[in-house]
Amino acid sequence: MKKTTFILMAIVSALFLLSWILKAGSLSGETDNYILQGFLVTFSAFLTLSVLSFLYADNPLYKFAEHLFVGVSAAFWMCMGFWTTIVQNLIPRLSDGLSKFFEQQPQPGDYNFFFFIPVILGIMLLMRLSPKGGWISRWPLAFIIGTTAGLNFVRYLRSDFIKQISNTFVPLLGTEWQGIGHFFSNLDLSASGQLVAIAANWVIFLGVFCGLIYFYFSKEHKGAFGAASKVGIWVLMLTFGASFGYTVMGRISLLVGRITFLFRDWLEIIS
């Protein structure tokens, strides 16, 4: 270990201990297990700062935090899956003895041979771990992929295809069209006015139309077709821009969340 690394580690450890002591001290009047609470808050702050340190440069503290996060979240998901699905949903339907063991209310009347099928498929899926029986896991996997594809195909076709087509059926002259004379004599520029409504409908129609043309690969993009495809790519870029803007907002919200934690829960400089 290099000398600077050693010194840095020593400083970080010392700061950690100091923060733990101070935090535990400030919590001592509020909770009984203040030593643990003090440790948890300090540790959270330490992990937050470790991850943020990546902004300066990659370093061992960041790597530690990252690996810890990956490990803990994998374990957390596994435990949740086990307790909420296998223990709560499956076991009460399989056997009384097991339900009793896991302190679950058995569900009389729900014993069903069919519930053994997922059990068998689940065990087959675990065969992935075996070096020789790995091929067995392909069968349940095929079942999962097949059912998910079938389930999603119908839903997507309905919600993202047919419904979306019918959503583009907008009257290009608005719903209250009473002739061009009436339109100009009652011209209304407000957001709820007829002009804006008509413009919005045109944007929807042209956006869908030109966007689809951009993704039409069977014809070269020349002439009018090319022009429409140009408009299409502009529409796409505007969408991506909006998406980017939203992403920036989202990321800053996350930063606000972390900084609020550091200032409020750890340093206690805001209430």
């Binding site: 087509i165 019918s166 583009t168 059926f169 907008v170 009257p171 290009l172 002259l173 069209w177 129609f205 869908v208 139309f209 689809l212 043309i213």
Partner: peptide, 13 residues
């Protein structure tokens, strides 16, 4: 979709 959307617009109007 393009054809249907175009007919749909006229239908909506």
């Amino acid at each position: 979709v393009i054809v249907l959307a175009t007919i749909g617009l006229i239908a909506a109007q």
